[in-house]
Design a protein around this nucleic acid. Structure first.
Length: 448
DNA sequence: GAGGATGATTTGAA
DNA sequence: TTCAAATCATCCTC
């Protein structure tokens, strides 16, 4: 509907309502020296409306003067109330067409993310705690991790602060602007019909505009957090070798449980504590170790020799004049005699799973270590001076060994569910032959 | 810088 | 979920 039509409608409404406003007009008429006739009155109302319609086309001073004239016009209250009524109807019809909009899913997603990341809502662990976990995993619990973590937290705190500052600014600006517009509308309501609902609607529009700006801010904040996070997670890929001591501990465990190198959860946790790395890193390490052991069994056996010798030295320990023969010293590893709940001290096993009551010398210790490492019989140990013979690198013949007797708690490893698969990779002496000829390519139990 | 070593990740199977 | 295997990415040694 254009201005002209609206004007016509208002005029006809005014004409129709003329009778109803007559009562009001009576008072004014009494105040006026002359009472105009009907056509004159219509003309007058038409003029007033025309003036209202064109008031915006005039200069400020001119409009101000016109406004003043209109305000003082005797017909003003009646006209004003009619216009208010019409306006009210219009506003209601607009309002009715405006459905209550459901919350924007995008905004909800952003809000949820910001809360989860600890940027919005109360300051809590959120993303920073996730970061802490990831950093711990990345750094292996080493001090560097703490540095990275604090760095991440500092940056996240910075983002949080910027976000809240900006949000506050927007809210303040929104409130100021709303107040300004409301005041303006109230001011205007003196000269033109403005219903409270219209003001409400205007406030709603302003808030909507500002919430759109807020959404942009939230989006930018989310992006900043994602960038920070991705940088942080990229750092996770930066590999750091474990400390020498940690590798030693892990290798000792591996070679002293060579028959079944699958540490239980408890053992993993204990190893993780000892090595200052995470349980998942322990799992990774054992996974890699098993694969690489299989792939390069020759080299692995050299390493096994080394650790066997080392364990033997540790087991024999410094000479003690009155050592109890029934309690050989711990290997220092996680197997027998260790604090890990392994087999009782002095209880060793041979290939057949028989217990061997150990003595007090290094041969016994070797028996233990080697039985743990590869399941050599005491005899074979003795014949090979308690070490993996270099020939072992070429050795053939692998079969399951070292079955812990029931009820002993066994080796500190998981149940033997993997043993069958792994058994094929355990170096094993043929009990009839001391060891196979290194060049015996046709040996029936060749290395896989 | 090349190449091996090594920790982490991905993928598929059980 | 855990594991094996393959692969990636980085470190380390020469």
């Amino acid at each position: 509907m254009d201005d002209q039509q609206r004007l016509m409608q208002i005029q006809s409404n005014v004409a129709a309502m003329n009778n109803s406003v007559m009562g009001q007009q009576q008072g004014y008429e009494n105040m006026q020296p002359t009472a105009p006739t009907d056509p004159d009155r219509k003309q007058e109302i038409g003029d007033i409306l025309q003036q209202i319609m064109t008031i915006t086309d005039q200069s400020l001073d001119e409009a101000q003067a016109r406004k003043h004239t209109l305000n003082c016009h005797r017909m003003k209250p009646a006209l004003f109330s009619v216009l208010c009524e019409i306006k009210e109807k219009t506003v209601l019809s607009i309002r009715n067409t405006q459905e209550e909009e459901p919350p924007d899913p995008q905004l909800m997603r952003l809000d949820n993310m910001l809360i989860a990341e600890g940027v919005a809502g109360p300051e809590k662990g959120g993303g920073s705690s996730a970061a802490a976990n990831a950093t711990a995993a990345a750094s292996g619990g080493q001090p560097d991790g703490a540095i990275e973590h604090s760095d991440y937290r500092a940056k996240l705190a910075q983002i949080r602060q910027i976000y809240h500052t900006e949000l506050e600014k927007y809210e303040q600006a929104c409130n100021e602007f709303t107040t300004h517009v409301v005041n303006l509308l109230r001011e205007q309501s003196r000269t033109r019909p403005i219903a409270p609902k219209e003001i409400e609607r205007m406030v709603g529009i302003i808030r909507k505009k500002f919430s759109a700006i807020e959404m942009q801010l939230k989006q930018s904040t989310c992006e900043a957090v994602m960038i920070l996070r991705s940088r942080f997670l990229d750092a996770r890929r930066k590999r750091r070798n474990f400390s020498k001591q940690a590798t030693e501990v892990l290798n000792e465990y591996f070679y002293s449980h060579l028959s079944n190198p699958y540490p239980s959860e408890e053992a993993k946790e204990e190893l993780a504590r000892k090595c200052s790395i995470t349980v998942s890193q322990i799992s990774n390490w054992f996974g890699n170790k098993r694969i690489r052991y299989k792939k390069n069994i020759g080299k692995a056996q050299e390493e096994a020799n080394m650790y066997a010798a080392k364990a033997a030295r540790a087991a024999s320990g410094p000479p003690t004049p009155h050592q109890d023969p029934s309690t050989p010293q711990s290997t220092g590893g996680y197997g027998i005699g260790s604090s890990q709940g392994g087999m009782e001290a002095g209880m060793y096993m041979n290939l057949n799973g028989d217990n061997y009551q150990g003595g007090d010398n290094s041969v016994n210790a070797l028996r233990h270590v080697i039985s743990q490492s590869g399941g050599y019989t005491p005899d074979s140990v003795a014949s090979s001076a308690g070490m993996f013979d270099p020939h072992l690198q070429q050795m053939t013949g692998y079969r399951p060994v070292v079955i812990p007797p029931p009820g002993t708690g066994g080796l500190d490893v998981e149940e033997d569910k993997h043993e069958e698969n792994w058994a094929g990779y355990i170096p094993q002496m043929n009990q009839d032959d001391e060891y196979s000829d290194s060049n015996d390519e046709d040996s029936p139990n060749k290395t896989k």
